[in-house]
Simulated assay, not measured.
Amino acid sequence: MIVLAIDCAANLCAACVYDADAGRELGRKVVDLGKGHAEHLMTIIAEALGEGGVGYSDLDRIGVAIGPGSFTGLRVGVATARGLALALKVPAVGVTTLEALAAEARQGFAGRAVLAALDGGRGEIHAALYDERAVLRHGPMVMTLDEAVRMATETMPVLAGTVANRIAEAAARRFDIGPLTPTADIATYARLAASKAPGVSPKPVYLREADAKPQAGFILPRTGG
């Protein structure tokens, strides 16, 4: 099975071609954009395919990071994955940033529970707890730092994500720490997408409303029939 994985959940705009049967990466392209995913994603996909010597017709599955993460980036990545899947008549599979970070944490701490937690802004933490068998137990959810500390103290998991150190410091206890990044390596998304059974089309995971909202004062009332 040849998988194309896409990640636009954070600053990175990334694509990877992965041979699931051989268990190896064929090609990748990763660019730290910050913004502008929509303008660059198709070029980045084309470069990853070219490096792997793979064409669109060779793809058997599309994997995509579905968040939590950047509102705009998630929309771009998921829309592209769904469009490609429809055009190529192959399944699209969503992978959350939290489960991808947890998977990377388990590479260094096998057989351990993982609390993956990201800074959601506005004092919020976006988190999910996975048990020793990588089964999701809680989340993805919004929680406060105090709530994250309580969960970490009760379960003593490996901590991963951008607020892992903050949770450990607030708990005043020693924890094993996994990746501290806002998203996982693109090959991790490819491996997880290959391992999942296809289901409904992927949708972005939004744990809170977008910061930008229409200005109601500028909306004109409807007139006429």
Rank of each mutant, 00 (worst) to 15 (best):
A79N: 01
L129W: 10
V93F: 11
G120M: 01
V64P: 07
L101I: 03
A105E: 04
L129V: 12
H126S: 12
I66Y: 13
G69C: 07
V78D: 07
G73V: 10
G111A: 06
A116G: 09
H126Y: 15
L101S: 00
L115F: 14
A65S: 15
G94L: 11
Q107T: 08
R137Y: 04
V64G: 15
G67N: 03
D146W: 12
A87G: 13
L98A: 02
A134C: 12
G121Y: 11
F71I: 04
L98M: 07
L136V: 08
Y130T: 07
E124W: 04
G139N: 14
G108T: 01
L84C: 12
A85W: 04
A128M: 02
L129S: 10
V142F: 02
V135K: 11
G67Y: 03
L98E: 07
L74P: 05
A117Q: 12
A117S: 13
V114T: 09
T97C: 12
R137I: 10
V135N: 11
A85G: 15
D131G: 12
V114Y: 14
V95P: 02
A117M: 11
G69K: 01
A85I: 06
A105W: 02
T96D: 08
A110K: 15
A105G: 07
V114C: 02
A105D: 09
Y130D: 01
L145T: 01
L98Y: 09
A65H: 10
L88H: 03
K89W: 09
L84N: 10
T80H: 08
L101C: 05
G94D: 11
L118C: 10
R82S: 12
V78E: 06
P140Q: 12
A81Q: 05
I125P: 02
L145C: 02
L84Y: 14
L129N: 02
A103K: 05
E132W: 10
E124K: 01
G83L: 05
A85M: 05
R133E: 14
G73A: 08
G108R: 00
V78W: 05
A127Q: 08
S70H: 02
V76E: 01
D146H: 06
I125M: 13
R75H: 01
T96Y: 01
L84I: 11
L115G: 13
G83N: 06
F109H: 15
A103I: 04
V93K: 08
A81G: 14
A92D: 01
G69I: 04
I125S: 03
L136W: 06
R137C: 11
S70E: 09
D146V: 13
A105I: 00
T144H: 00
V93M: 10
I125Y: 00
R122A: 08
E132D: 12
P68D: 02
G73I: 07
V76L: 11
L129F: 15
R122H: 14
M141A: 15
E147W: 03
G94C: 15
G111H: 04
L136F: 06
R112F: 05
G139M: 07
L98W: 08
R122E: 10
L145A: 09
E99F: 13
D131P: 00
A134G: 09
L101W: 00
K89M: 11
G123D: 09
A116Y: 02
A65G: 15
P68F: 03
G77L: 09
R112C: 15
L118W: 03
A87K: 07
K89F: 15
A127K: 01
A92Q: 13
A65T: 10
T96R: 06
L118E: 04
